[in-house]
């Protein structure tokens, strides 16, 4: 890739690498900081589900740019890690939320809306409409 061998391209790549590195690390740090100071589990879930993915994604992009800078090669393997993290983050967040609802973790007092999953009294009846394809799904599954 001879067309890349220009001085200003090197400078631009270096600046972009440094910027993405610091931005990614900052976002990663902020989301972990949120996990410490937020008040209930449902709030703490938001940091890792989104911000960590973006932060690590930015660091991976910075690494790709760095290897373009020093070796003039694109390492698409790093792109695979980024895509993998993007696909898996919502799934693990959803599962964790399900676990928290299953264990009836208390939500913060300022939370508006009371889902029937968290109410104690009508757990047995919920959900009231059975699934058309699953016989007996009107009753809540007992572990």
């Amino acid at each position: 890739m001879a067309w890349l061998d220009k001085a200003w391209i090197d400078t631009a790549l270096e600046a972009m690498t440094a910027f993405f590195l610091v931005a990614g690390a900052l976002i990663t740090f902020i989301s972990s900081f949120g996990m410490v100071h937020l008040r209930d589990f449902y709030l703490r879930m938001h940091g890792p589900a989104k911000a960590t993915t973006l932060g690590v994604g930015l660091i991976l992009i910075a690494c790709m740019l760095y290897f373009v800078l020093i070796e003039r090669t694109f390492h698409i393997q790093l792109l695979l890690v980024t895509i993998f993290l993007l696909i898996t983050a919502p799934i693990s967040a959803h599962l964790l939320a399900k676990v928290a609802l299953h264990q009836k973790l208390p939500s913060d007092t300022t939370t508006t809306g009371a889902p029937s999953e968290l109410r104690e009294e009508d757990v047995a009846q919920e959900p009231d409409t059975p699934h058309p394809e699953v016989p007996g799904s009107g009753q809540r599954h007992s572990p």
């Binding site: 589900a49 993915t53 919502p90 967040a93 939320a97 928290a100 699934h131």
Partner: peptide
Amino acid sequence: LASTISLTPGTISANLRLDGR
């Protein structure tokens, strides 16, 4: 839709009700 909701502004999909509605 659930994955999109989990990835976008300040929302997380927590539970799909058994009746799917």
